[in-house]
């Protein structure tokens, strides 16, 4: 299976970055073809410019500034996101990846003002993430990143594609044991690909 793994954490020594490396290695060891986008490493600019916004609905040219990302996204059969939750949302660099890459003509079409999702090449989604807050507190806040995965991403890719959301909450209180057991959980889920 061709899998696109997207990562967004600035610190290479972080737990999150080790989850990214583990993901890539495990998928490759299992014989998958792995594409990676390491947004910080690549110095990705998440800010949609004025020109991009003005050309947003022009299907001929809107993808030009991020063409390689669009190509990788459209070639993928599965998408894995590895990132930390900051302020109950994606880090800006990842939010901007969605803003700039998930364009009309790429992930959706617009017909009469209505959105038609088109990213049907993707048949599986896995999210691997870590929170500072507890699951309860995140739930109180409506847990926006969980809803983005389970509702929005699910609706964007092939209908019926499984979406798995793996989160380590309360990172500040994590121990060697909680981290290890989370890594095993991630491996187990990667093996289902």
């Amino acid at each position: 299976m061709r899998v696109l793994v997207v990562h967004a954490h600035p610190v290479a020594a972080s737990f999150n970055a080790s989850l990214f490396r583990l993901t890539v290695e495990r998928l490759a060891a299992n014989g998958h073809q792995v594409d990676t986008i390491d947004l910080y490493q690549d110095g990705f600019n998440p800010v949609m410019s004025e020109t991009e916004r003005l050309n947003y609905h022009d299907l001929e040219i809107n993808r030009k500034p991020v063409e390689s990302h669009v190509d990788q996204l459209l070639a993928a059969e599965a998408l894995v996101l590895v990132y930390p939750v900051w302020n109950y949302g994606f880090p800006a660099i990842l939010k901007g990846w969605f803003d700039r890459v998930f364009l009309p003509g790429v992930s959706f079409g617009l017909a009469d003002g209505k959105v038609r999702p088109t990213l049907h090449n993707i048949g599986r989604i896995l999210v691997v993430t870590s929170y500072g807050g507890s699951r309860f507190r995140s739930w109180l806040m409506g847990d926006p990143p969980r809803k983005i995965a389970n509702r929005i991403l699910r609706a964007t890719v092939r209908p019926g594609a499984p979406v798995t959301y793996l989160a380590h909450y309360e990172m500040n209180l994590s121990t060697e044991q909680t981290r290890q057991s989370f890594m095993s959980k991630v491996e187990k889920n990667l093996d289902k690909f």
Partner: peptide, 17 residues
Amino acid sequence: WWYGLPAMLKGWLDRVW
């Protein structure tokens, strides 16, 4: 955008708050 804050604004929360 994409059901959330533009990256610009999300990053303002991340960096300033």
